[in-house]
Amino acid sequence: MTPQFPIISVYNDGIEIFEDESHLASATVLAVLKGEKDSKAYDGNGKKWNYKLVSSKVKDNFLTRVLANTVYNPIVKVHPKWSKSSDFDIHELKTIVQHCIDNDDDVLTQFVDAKTLKQHIANSPAFEDVYNVLKKYSFEVDEDELFGNKE
């Protein structure tokens, strides 16, 4: 059982958007080791999912952890292990996204200020709208369109 893509993924007060599962095919060794225990995904069907990236290439031992945290943290092939958590409503999703914007480290707000982004999220009536706002202002930014620099 897997979520319906696209999804909005939330972990460690950060957000990513994924159009399909192929975008979850690789990760660093450290990401696999940490397990991202709080990784949640929200899909367009109103389902919330927990997931963990797993890889047969990563052995959880002292040496691997030391290397991944210091000098050697390669990218490996992974696959997500999904478990359905619960249903969610749009208010819950918007609250979580707004919280992530408040705790953002200039990733979501690189091209637009937090107040503007939060206002667009607040005005989004459905999952698809929240997803498209994040895509437009944070992940697939067309700076010419966003800032009116068309010639």
Score class of each variant (00 low, 15 high):
residue 4 Q to I: 11
residue 71 V to K: 13
residue 15 I to W: 06
residue 130 V to A: 07
residue 110 Q to E: 13
residue 14 G to T: 15
residue 113 D to S: 14
residue 112 V to P: 00
residue 78 V to G: 06
residue 102 D to R: 10
residue 13 D to G: 00
residue 35 G to Y: 09
residue 96 I to D: 12
residue 74 P to R: 04
residue 133 V to L: 06
residue 42 Y to A: 12
residue 11 Y to E: 08
residue 25 A to D: 11
residue 137 Y to M: 12
residue 45 N to Y: 04
residue 39 S to F: 07
residue 28 T to V: 00
residue 86 S to M: 07
residue 45 N to C: 06
residue 3 P to F: 06
residue 24 L to T: 05
residue 59 K to C: 03
residue 114 A to H: 03
residue 3 P to A: 12
residue 75 I to S: 13
residue 29 V to H: 03
residue 120 H to D: 12
residue 53 L to N: 04
residue 104 D to Y: 08
residue 16 E to W: 07
residue 55 S to L: 02
residue 57 K to Q: 15
residue 55 S to C: 09
residue 121 I to F: 05
residue 104 D to F: 09
residue 143 E to S: 10
residue 144 D to S: 14
residue 115 K to L: 09
residue 137 Y to D: 12
residue 16 E to I: 01
residue 71 V to Y: 15
residue 135 K to R: 15
residue 130 V to I: 09
residue 134 L to M: 03
residue 85 S to R: 10
residue 10 V to L: 15
residue 123 N to L: 12
residue 30 L to W: 05
residue 148 G to R: 08
residue 31 A to P: 00
residue 98 Q to A: 14
residue 44 G to R: 14
residue 84 K to H: 05
residue 134 L to E: 01
residue 127 F to I: 12
residue 68 A to H: 10
residue 143 E to H: 10
residue 115 K to M: 08
residue 86 S to G: 10
residue 78 V to K: 04
residue 136 K to L: 02
residue 51 Y to P: 03
residue 112 V to I: 14
residue 90 I to T: 10
residue 8 I to C: 06
residue 130 V to D: 11
residue 15 I to R: 09
residue 105 D to P: 00
residue 13 D to Y: 11
residue 8 I to R: 07
residue 105 D to G: 02
residue 35 G to S: 11
residue 18 F to A: 13
residue 17 I to D: 08
residue 22 S to M: 10
residue 46 G to C: 13
residue 142 D to E: 01
residue 127 F to D: 11
residue 138 S to R: 02
residue 56 S to T: 06
residue 136 K to H: 06
residue 84 K to G: 00
residue 4 Q to K: 14
residue 151 E to C: 01
residue 138 S to M: 04
residue 58 V to E: 01
residue 30 L to I: 00
residue 96 I to W: 03
residue 124 S to W: 09
residue 87 D to W: 03
residue 109 T to R: 04
residue 21 E to M: 07
